[in-house]
C-alpha cells in the first residue's frame, strides 16, 4: 500500500516535471515541425537567468522575468536564425538548432563558469508542506505540480478558446489561406517559437532549483523531451500531458517493483536461469530506458502517438 501511494505520488511529480519540460517543445514541434534540439538549452538558460536575477531581485520576480527573457531570446532566434533557414528544409533547421545547443552551452560557461551554481528555492518553499508515512514533501514539489497544471490549463484554453489560438492552429495547416485573410503568418510563427522557449525557460526556473543547475544540464536532459512529444502525438497538448504522466508512472513503478526479466519470464511460465546476464537485469535497472522502448514501439505500431491528430 505504502509503496503504491508513494509511487503514484512520485510518478505524478516526475510526470508533471516532464510535462513542464516538453510542453514548449510540443508547441514548437507540432506546430512548426521544427525538431528543436536546443529546447533543453532554453531550459538551461531559464535556470541560469533565474539564478542570476534571483540574487538581485529575488526569486518571485525572477520566476516571471526569466521566462520572458528566454522567450524574447527564442523569438529573436526564430526571426534572425530559423526563418532564413526554413526555406532549406527541416534538416537544415534541425542542424541550426543543433549548433545553437552547442553555442548556448558554451555561452553559459563563459558567463557562469563550468561548475554548478548554488541556485536554490526560497526558504518559504523549502518548508515541508505535508508528511506521508514519515516522508516529507517540501512545498516546492507541490508548487511545481501546481505550475505544471496551470501551464497545461492556460495553454489548452489559449489554443482552443481564444481567437489567437484558432489562428495559430489554422496557420499550421493552411498558412497561405491564413495569410490571404490578412494575418501575419511569420509573426504567428515567431510568437509560437517565443512562447515555446518561454515555457522551457519557466521549466528551467523551477527545474533548475529542484535538480542541479550546471552547464551539462541541457545535455543530460537528452532526448527524453522528444519521447514525450512523439509518444503523446503530434499536435496534441493533451497527448503530451498524458504521455508525461504515463512515462512518469512507468518509470517510478518499474523502480518500485524491482523484479528481474528472468522473474517476469518465469511468471508467465518460461523457465530461465534467474541470474543470467540478460535475465538478471532488473526492471529498476532499465527503468530510465523504458521511455525509449515505448517510443520505438509506439512509432512502429501507432505512429500517430497516443492522441495525435495526424501522422507526421
Amino acid at each position: 500500500m505504502e509503496v503504491v501511494v508513494f509511487s503514484l505520488l512520485n510518478g505524478l511529480l516526475y510526470g508533471l516535471l516532464l510535462f513542464m519540460l516538453s510542453s514548449g517543445l510540443t508547441l514548437i514541434f507540432s506546430m512548426m515541425g521544427v525538431l528543436n534540439f536546443a529546447h533543453a538549452s532554453f531550459y538551461m538558460l531559464g535556470a541560469y537567468l533565474a539564478y542570476a536575477m534571483g540574487g538581485q531581485i529575488g526569486f518571485w520576480p525572477a520566476l516571471f522575468l526569466a521566462p520572458v527573457l528566454v522567450g524574447v531570446a527564442g523569438a529573436l532566434v526564430e526571426r534572425y536564425g530559423l526563418r532564413p533557414v526554413h526555406a532549406n528544409g527541416h534538416v537544415a533547421e534541425l542542424l541550426f538548432t543543433f549548433g545553437l545547443a552547442y553555442l548556448i552551452e558554451e555561452i553559459v560557461k563563459l558567463f557562469w563558469g563550468k561548475q554548478p551554481v548554488p541556485y536554490r528555492v526560497p526558504d518559504v518553499l523549502s518548508q515541508p508542506i505535508f508528511t506521508l508515512f514519515e516522508t516529507t514533501y517540501p512545498a516546492f514539489r507541490v508548487f511545481m505540480m501546481v505550475v505544471a497544471l496551470l501551464m497545461f490549463g492556460v495553454l489548452w484554453l489559449l489554443l482552443k478558446r481564444t481567437r489567437a489560438g484558432l489562428m495559430i492552429q489554422a496557420a499550421l495547416t493552411h498558412p497561405h489561406m491564413v495569410g490571404h485573410l490578412g494575418h501575419n503568418v511569420p509573426l504567428i510563427f515567431m510568437t509560437v517559437f517565443g512562447i515555446g522557449c518561454a515555457l522551457a525557460g519557466l521549466a528551467g526556473v523551477i527545474g533548475g532549483a529542484i535538480l542541479v543547475t550546471e552547464p551539462g544540464m541541457a545535455h543530460s536532459l537528452g532526448p527524453i523531451v522528444f519521447v514525450v512529444v512523439v509518444v503523446g502525438g503530434m499536435g496534441s497538448l493533451t497527448g503530451a500531458f498524458v504521455a508525461s504522466l504515463l512515462i512518469g508512472m512507468l518509470q517510478t513503478f518499474a523502480i518500485a517493483v524491482g523484479a528481474s526479466i528472468g522473474d517476469l519470464l518465469r511468471l508467465v511460465g518460461i523457465p530461465v536461469a534467474p541470474h543470467g546476464e540478460l535475465t538478471g537485469i532488473t526492471l529498476a535497472q532499465i527503468a530510465p530506458m523504458l521511455p525509449f522502448l515505448l517510443l520505438v514501439l509506439i512509432l512502429i505500431f501507432r505512429p500517430r502517438g497516443l492522441m495525435g491528430a495526424r501522422e507526421t
Binding site: 525538431l35 522528444f226 519521447v227 512523439v230 530506458m289 512509432l299 512502429i300 507526421t312
Partner: peptide, 20 residues
C-alpha cells in the same frame, strides 16, 4: 516501415536503447 520524422524518431530511440 516508417519514413520521415517517425523514422528519425525510431532511430533515436533505437540508438538510446542500444547505447544503454
Amino acid at each position: 516501415r516508417r519514413a520521415g520524422t517517425p523514422f528519425a524518431m525510431i532511430t533515436l530511440g533505437i540508438g538510446e536503447l542500444i547505447a544503454a
